[in-house]
Simulated scan of single mutants.
Amino acid sequence: MGAKISTSGSAKRGTFQTNAEPNIIPFVDVMLVLLIIFMVAAPIATVDIKVTLPESKVLPSKRPPKPTYVSLNNDSGSATYFVGNNQVDPMEIGQEVLKEVPRNDREADTLEKIITTRIYVRANTDTPYRNVVFIMNRLQEEGFFKVALVGEDTRR
C-alpha cells in the first residue's frame, strides 16, 4: 500500500491517508531486468556441440503406388465410365485398366503383378447398383479380383 503525501483540508496535520492503488513501478523494473537477462542468456543455450551419431540401419520405406480408380458418373440417367481420368467404352474397361495399372505402379511389370493390384471403384450416389456390378464383372473377366468400393468419408 502507498500513502498520500498531500492531504485534503479535513485530515490532521502529520497523518497520511492510505492509498489502495498498487505501485507497479518496482514490478516493471524487475520484469525489464529479467527480460534483459533472458535475452543475453538465450544465445548461450544454443551452442553447437559436435556429436557423432550412429548411422541408421533402417532402409527408407518405398512410396506406395498411385491407386487405380474406375469411376462411374451417372448424369441425367446416362452412365459415363472413366479409368483414371480418361473416359472409356463400358465394354473395354478391363483392357483399359490393364493399360492404366503399369502407369500408376512402376513395379507392376508382369501380368501377374498387374492383376493382383487393387482396383478402386467409385460412383455417384444416384447411380444404380447394377452399373457398379457391371464394372466389377468387366474387371473380373480380365482377372482383377481385388476390387474395392470407395465410399465418402463422413467423419468431420
Results as ranks from 00 to 15, higher is better:
Ile24Asp: 05
Ile24Gly: 03
Ile24Ser: 11
Ile25Lys: 09
Phe27Asp: 02
Phe27His: 01
Val28Ser: 08
Val28Gln: 09
Val28Asn: 04
Val28Ala: 15
Val28Met: 13
Asp29Glu: 04
Val30Ser: 11
Val30Asp: 06
Met31Phe: 12
Met31Ile: 13
Met31Ser: 11
Val33Thr: 07
Val33Asp: 00
Leu34Asp: 02
Leu34Val: 12
Ile36Val: 15
Ile37Ala: 15
Ile37Val: 15
Ile37Phe: 15
Phe38Thr: 14
Phe38Trp: 10
Val40Lys: 02
Ala41Thr: 10
Ala42Val: 11
Ala42Gln: 05
Pro43Gly: 04
Pro43Cys: 04
Ala45Glu: 04
Ala45Cys: 04
Ala45Tyr: 09
Val47Ser: 08
Asp48Thr: 04
Asp48Ile: 02
Ile49Trp: 09
Val51Asp: 08
Val51Pro: 01
Val51Tyr: 13
Val51Lys: 13
Val51Arg: 11
Val51Glu: 13
Thr52Cys: 01
Thr52Val: 13
Thr52Met: 05
Leu53Cys: 01
Pro54Lys: 12
Glu55Ala: 11
Leu59Met: 06
Leu59Glu: 13
Pro60Tyr: 06
Ser61Ala: 14
Ser61Pro: 12
Lys62His: 10
Lys62Glu: 15
Arg63Glu: 15
Pro64Gly: 05
Pro64Ala: 09
Pro65Ile: 05
Pro65His: 12
Lys66Gln: 13
Lys66Thr: 14
Pro67His: 08
Pro67Val: 11
Thr68Val: 15
Thr68Leu: 03
Thr68Ser: 15
Thr68Asn: 08
Thr68Pro: 03
Val70Pro: 01
Val70Gly: 03
Val70Tyr: 10
Ser71His: 05
Ser71Pro: 05
Leu72Asp: 01
Leu72Cys: 06
Leu72Arg: 01
Leu72Pro: 02
Asn73Cys: 00
Asn73Lys: 14
Asn74Val: 02
Asn74Ala: 04
Asn74Glu: 06
Asp75Ile: 07
Ser76Phe: 09
Ser78Met: 09
Ser78Ala: 12
Ala79Tyr: 09
Ala79Leu: 08
Ala79Thr: 06
Thr80Gly: 01
Thr80Ile: 07
